[in-house]
Design a protein around this nucleic acid. Structure first.
Lengths: 199, 199
DNA sequence: CGATAAAACTGACTGACGGTCGGTAATTAC
DNA sequence: GTAATTACCGACCGTCAGTCAGTTTTATCG
């Protein structure tokens, strides 16, 4: 009984692993279901037995990658002086991770295109995106930032961070670009700080 | 001799017009070259005679739409008190235009997916995107904003505006969402203003 | 006006790829 | 054991972007 479940999980994992590699390396469009099937060591029919279609395979891969990225970002921003500073760190870790290699391909290039912007944000909001809103909310509670609607502001930041990640991925000197964008991002964050010290 | 050129231009225009309508209504993926050909009143081969492929058709449509949007944005922000305020107005006009209907489909949903983020920004930078950098630069020159690298900051804003446009397009009450995002955007812009010596 | 070249245009055809489906093998339940 | 359920197989199908050999239209020149 557990045998069956194991077997299923194993096959699923193999498909996911192969798909992640292929999607990351070649992108969604350039990867065929036949390739995925072959790379996972199963027949095409088996892939369709586990996933309703190519997009669903991608969605599963995307979710896995999302989770992993959020985990690493959280780890990177664990220690920080105040909440806004932690946001700057997290944000920087996020777009550094996303701007390089397979992760960027899945998270930024293909993500919105394949899943649609809405679903893309929906998933991201469960991992990294949601944290921005939380931190912002906390910052307001602490008086670091003037009280105002959180949602719109959080979305704007998410958009800015995404843009930075894309730009870094495209840049010839990603590291240098990363520094430049991190700085600009901090300028933006600092601008939010309450002007007349509420302290 | 002008006859030939006329004919060519006319056919091209017909294809572009049909493609714009179809891409806007159904999106890039759901539109077939056969449809475009039929709607333009020419054979498929003629479309390929004028454009190297489906993506090139889209690119031409995208450029036309981009230009039109930039024109309307410029018109909307013509009168404004200071440069930052004009940016707020322009920005708002931009994401209002982009968040609705066919324009949004072409500019935001399919644009980056089909052209690739890099090429997408490249084209946009020739129209709307470039203006952000210009305005920011001017604002620094006038002392409204502390001097700092313009490029990264401009990109972040562009990302934020794009995000706002997407969110508005998705929202159930686009008008209300538009107001909320416009306000958040102004908060961000205001945060950039040089702080008063009085504290 | 032909004759010739060049460009615009046609539409049947091809190859690739996502997805289907009838069938087989393995596993579990009774 | 047998029946039922689930995993898996792979030949086949429909669709669609892109091709190409051939036809029509337009421009050029003697």
């Amino acid at each position: 009984m557990a045998r069956q479940a194991d077997r299923t999980a194993q096959t699923r994992a193999a498909i996911l692993e192969a798909a992640k590699t292929l999607f990351g390396a070649q992108g969604f469009a350039a990867t065929t279901m036949d390739e995925i099937a072959q790379a996972s060591g199963v027949a095409k029919g088996a892939v369709y037995h586990h996933f309703a279609g190519k997009e669903r395979v991608f969605e599963a891969v995307f979710e896995a990658v999302s989770m992993e990225v959020a985990r690493q970002v959280a780890a990177a921003s664990a220690e920080a002086t105040d909440v806004l500073a932690s946001m700057a760190t997290a944000t920087r870790a996020y777009f550094t991770l996303c701007s390089e290699g397979p992760t960027g391909q899945v998270m930024l290039r293909d993500g919105p295109a394949v899943l649609g912007w809405a679903r893309w944000r929906e998933i991201d909001a469960q991992h990294f995106g949601g944290d921005i809103a939380k931190v912002l909310h906390l910052a307001m509670k602490q008086g670091l930032v003037p009280a105002q609607p959180v949602e719109p502001l959080a979305r704007l930041f998410l958009g800015a961070v995404t843009e930075a990640a894309m730009a870094c991925g495209e840049a010839e000197h990603p590291a240098a670009a990363g520094r430049a964008y991190a700085e600009a991002l901090e300028t933006l964050l600092d601008g939010l700080r309450a002007r007349r010290p509420a302290r």
